[in-house]
Amino acid sequence: MTEKPYRSGYVAIIGRPNVGKSTLINRILGQKLCITSRRPQTTRHRILGIKTTDHAQLVYVDTPGMHSDGKRAMNRYMNRAATASIDDVDVIVFVIESLRWSDDDERVLKRLQNDADKPVILVLNKVDKAEDKAALLPQMEELAAKYPFAAVVPVSARRGINIEQLEAEVEKLMPEGEAIFDEDQLTDRSSRFLAAEMVREKLFRHLGQELPYSLTVDIEQFEDDDGMFRISAVIYVERSGQKSIVIGKKGELLKQVGQDARKDMEDLFGCKVFLQLWVKVREGWADNERMLRNLGYNDDL
């Protein structure tokens, strides 16, 4: 019996905002790496999630959602990060929401039609929410006529439906080659970066509709104190009125954000965490290219 060849490579997870790309990567990895919320544009950076098995290493690239709004520097940065990911991978996974097709979905497809020169798998996510399951097949056939997809796979990232089938389809398309990263490595991002993302996720989940897009998180201190991580994070907002909203009445909202973020950090890092949060005003940070770079929004990451 011929031994199965080892395969390795990069997989870009692309799609419009809020279709479940980060949830899909977390499900594939079997643990939480990418932050999620019900709000679009939660993901701002490209993040690698590394899945290593006995016969393959698949490096999944979580990308910001592609969208038409390019008015602010932050939005332009996210579109660049998402678009660049298509150029540097071996396989593309295009995620849409089952039984739904939007102008932003069409825009992503046009980008693939114009520039993609590698195999593309179409994923119909959130099939658990589809009331009319019989309508899935016509949608799959209709979309398959729009583009020569290597495979079309209906899944539920939230429920874990058909995830193994998707992974098998991705692996089949991967080139043969040795592992790119150490077998126990989960991501290319630092613990410092992941800590900031966890704080930002909790802010997205606890705050109102607009405010999350006006804030970012910067880790000022990250120290290993005899097996306990001491972390100090600054939450930057754009206006002074937003500062009081983030802090909340008698500091309750900020306290809750800190408690929730600390728990996630302890789960991921596997140790006790002492977390301090501060809120500061930095006007116009989200529309200033230089400030964005200083806060870690770099195109080369």
Rank of each mutant, 00 (worst) to 15 (best):
M66N: 01
I47K: 09
Y213G: 04
E201A: 03
M66V: 09
E197G: 04
K32V: 11
S214C: 08
I14S: 02
G9I: 04
R46M: 03
E176F: 03
D184W: 04
L275N: 09
L99D: 10
E3T: 11
K249G: 08
L295W: 09
A56M: 10
A168W: 10
N75P: 00
A157Y: 02
L268D: 10
L207T: 13
Q139H: 14
D90F: 07
T42F: 06
Y147F: 14
E183R: 14
F222H: 11
V199A: 10
D88Q: 11
T83G: 02
K243A: 07
M228Q: 14
V257N: 00
F274Y: 09
G49V: 08
K249W: 00
S232Y: 09
A233I: 11
I13C: 10
E164P: 00
Y6W: 05
K21I: 01
T43P: 00
A81M: 15
D115F: 10
A286W: 05
K126C: 02
V127I: 15
R205I: 15
S156V: 03
R200A: 06
V199S: 04
V61R: 02
Y60G: 00
V61S: 07
Y6Q: 03
K202W: 04
K110I: 15
L137P: 00
A12F: 02
G15V: 10
C34L: 15
V153A: 04
E283F: 12
A134L: 13
F274Q: 11
V120L: 03
V91S: 08
N288R: 07
Q256D: 06
E167G: 03
I35W: 04
A145R: 00
D182Y: 01
L124C: 01
I121V: 08
M291A: 14
E238K: 12
R44V: 13
E223G: 00
M66A: 01
K243N: 02
I92E: 01
R107S: 15
L268G: 00
D188H: 10
T187N: 05
Q256G: 07
R76N: 06
I180E: 00
V91R: 04
D69N: 04
N18Q: 05
F222M: 10
V11D: 05
G30Q: 11
M78P: 05
D218G: 01
G20L: 12
E201W: 06
R107W: 10
T216C: 14
V153Q: 07
N114F: 03
Y297F: 15
K249S: 14
F274V: 05
A134K: 12
R76A: 09
V19W: 02
F94M: 14
